[in-house]
């Protein structure tokens, strides 16, 4: 009984610790300006949406949201397409040298972004891709690919070989067997991989900061980091922008909880 109580207290503490900082930001975003200039009060006397209005009226924030969404969606689609093809080939066709290929993929996933930011800045400039959504999406797809290849190889490995061989014996082409038989079976894996890649792209900061220079291609994290304040830091507006930038991800994580957990732990636990 006492042990049960301890577990519940511990769980409550863990949940509170996880939720409190973000909850405080949500509270800040709906507090009237006057109540942000002193503490206490902890809780707002009334709930106001002026900070949200200010974020969308006074800044190109809607444009940044659109940029973020476009870049993350394109990069995720590209990484999933290329990653599932490569993952399938590695897991089911077992080409010679696949162990070395997988090892190389893992090593590439550990590259510190700052190590490649100066060459990518110069290369993107030479290719005319600086300050474009295309350039950013390509870089994100490249940086997410190791994860996508690795995860998809893990998920395809759990689909029985027989199904693939049966499809080929029945006259399916290689791509037919992949698209009609293997891919539908790998939908949970695709969802998990897609979620992790999308979250990575939505959150990325260093490349977004260095490869973009204007609203044309700037993404939400850069907007929030460089949030302009004329006289003092506009905490209410920053809080509102933070909540808007985070809400889609918290929603995705809640709806696809099982898939997110699968993706986070695949490979690391199963070996």
């Amino acid at each position: 009984m006492i042990r049960r109580l301890g577990t519940w207290l511990g769980l409550a503490a863990a949940c509170a610790w996880s939720l409190a900082p973000f909850a405080w930001q949500v509270l800040t975003s709906v507090k009237p300006q006057a109540e942000l200039e002193s503490l206490p009060p902890l809780l707002p006397s009334t709930i106001t949406l002026v900070h949200y209005e200010a974020v969308f009226a006074g800044h190109p924030f809607a444009h940044l949201l659109l940029n973020s969404f476009a870049v993350a969606a394109c990069a995720t689609a590209l990484a999933l397409a290329l990653g599932s093809l490569a993952g399938f080939a590695l897991a089911k066709l077992r080409p010679p040298g696949r162990a070395a290929t997988l090892a190389a993929v893992v090593v590439l996933s550990m590259l510190p972004p700052v190590a490649t930011v100066s060459p990518l800045f110069l290369l993107a400039g030479a290719a005319g891709l600086r300050d474009t959504l295309t350039g950013l999406a390509l870089v994100y797809a490249g940086f997410a690919l190791p994860l996508a290849v690795w995860l998809m190889a893990q998920f395809f490995r759990s689909v029985p070989d027989d199904l693939y061989i049966a499809a080929r014996v029945d006259g399916c082409s290689l791509l037919g067997a992949f698209g009609k038989v293997m891919l539908p079976l790998a939908v949970p894996g695709l969802t998990a991989t897609g979620l992790l890649v999308f979250v990575f792209c939505w959150n990325e900061f260093l490349f977004a900061l260095t490869l973009t220079s204007s609203t044309a291609a700037r993404t939400v994290p850069v907007g929030i980091a460089l949030f302009p304040g004329i006289h003092e830091v506009p905490w209410g507006e920053i809080a509102a922008a933070s909540v808007v930038a985070t809400a889609p991800l918290v929603l995705l994580a809640a709806v696809f909880q099982r898939r997110v957990l699968d993706g986070l732990t695949a490979g690391a636990v199963k070996g």
Binding site: F205, A225, V250, V260
Partner: peptide, 17 residues
Amino acid sequence: GAVLVPWAVPTVVSARI
């Protein structure tokens, strides 16, 4: 779900929080 929240918060946002 609660424990996943900090994971889902973008890093830049967490710095601002």
